[in-house]
């Protein structure tokens, strides 16, 4: 298996791409940060380890990046799903990017902590795309990864077990924490609208004032707009400074998509999107 530096360097020196988006070390010896390498020597700094948390697909729709022409991007399996979804939604063209997939051995929950069964990110447990489905080159080797408890799934089951009133109270409290910094939106590779509905003022569908109601509606519409689209990279939750368990929404919607339509977001770039297509046999038990 080729090494990331060799692959990246070859892509740059041959002129196949104009830039490679990857990870470099930052701060202490564990933390990484995204880096856009435009010169072959830049790639010497690239690292791949259990601390490459960012979903680099988010940069592909940024104007600063699309300006660079053809770019390569390092992608974990989940990140590659985001790229697939972006292709499905016409945000990038497959021929404009080169995906350097990595055989992923899991990532940590957050920087500055050791990678072990306690701290493995929830999304890495039961991951079925440790080798990315969409990639033009593949680097790294698969190794055994620690197992851990899927706490978020447990929380979802916990919420489901509550009655409507309790669920409302639970989410009202959680959304109450929201400071509308929109870090969730910023970190999400699939939030690429030129203007988010929450910023639309005529009419003001979602109140942006700091009221509980605005918070509730914002988080509700965000979950809905990602329904059938969220690929579960969980960057929104990691970005949230107020620790709102956003994956409880996104993952629940993904579970509904799976149950109802057997749909997995970001698995097939030629597949019709969940919203935007229909089946004559779609469930209508709830319609009188």
């Amino acid at each position: 298996m080729d090494d990331i530096k060799t692959v990246a360097k070859e892509l740059l020196t041959s002129g196949k791409v104009n830039a490679v988006i990857g990870y470099i070390r930052y701060g202490n010896d564990k933390r990484t940060k995204p880096f856009i390498a435009q010169k072959p020597e830049d790639v010497d700094k690239f690292v791949i380890n259990n601390f490459i948390l960012n979903n680099l697909a988010v940069y592909l729709t940024r104007k600063e990046v699309s300006k660079l022409g053809k770019v390569a991007v390092i992608a974990k399996g989940c990140d590659a799903k985001a790229i697939t979804a972006l292709i499905q939604e016409n945000q990038i063209k497959k021929e404009d990017i080169h995906v350097i997939g990595i055989n992923c051995n899991g990532v940590t929950k957050d920087f500055d902590i050791d990678f072990n069964s306690e701290n493995i990110a929830g999304k890495c447990l039961n991951c079925d795309v440790r080798t990315p489905k969409l990639c033009d080159s593949l680097v790294g080797a698969l190794a055994d990864i620690p197992s851990g408890e899927d706490l978020k799934l447990k929380m979802i089951r916990g919420v489901e077990a509550k009655n409507a009133e309790e669920r409302w109270d639970y989410f009202e409290d959680e959304f109450n924490k929201c400071i509308k910094c929109y870090a969730c939106r910023q970190a999400c590779p699939l939030c690429y609208c030129e203007q988010c509905i929450v910023d639309k003022s005529i009419p003001r569908w979602i109140e942006s004032s700091a009221t509980k109601r605005g918070n509730f509606s914002w988080n509700l519409i965000r979950a809905f707009h990602l329904a059938g689209r969220c690929i579960g990279c969980n960057e929104c939750e990691r970005a949230c400074p107020m620790d709102i368990p956003l994956s409880l929404l996104n993952r629940k919607m993904a579970m509904i998509a799976k149950d109802e339509f057997n749909y997995d977001a970001g698995t097939d770039m030629n597949a019709p999107t969940l919203v935007g297509s229909y089946d004559l046999k779609d469930n209508e038990d709830f319609i009188e």
Partner: peptide, 13 residues
């Protein structure tokens, strides 16, 4: 056209 991000969900439906 200023706001359109070109996702073409409109085209799909």
């Amino acid at each position: 056209e200023n706001l359109c991000a070109g996702c073409f969900y409109c085209k799909k439906v």
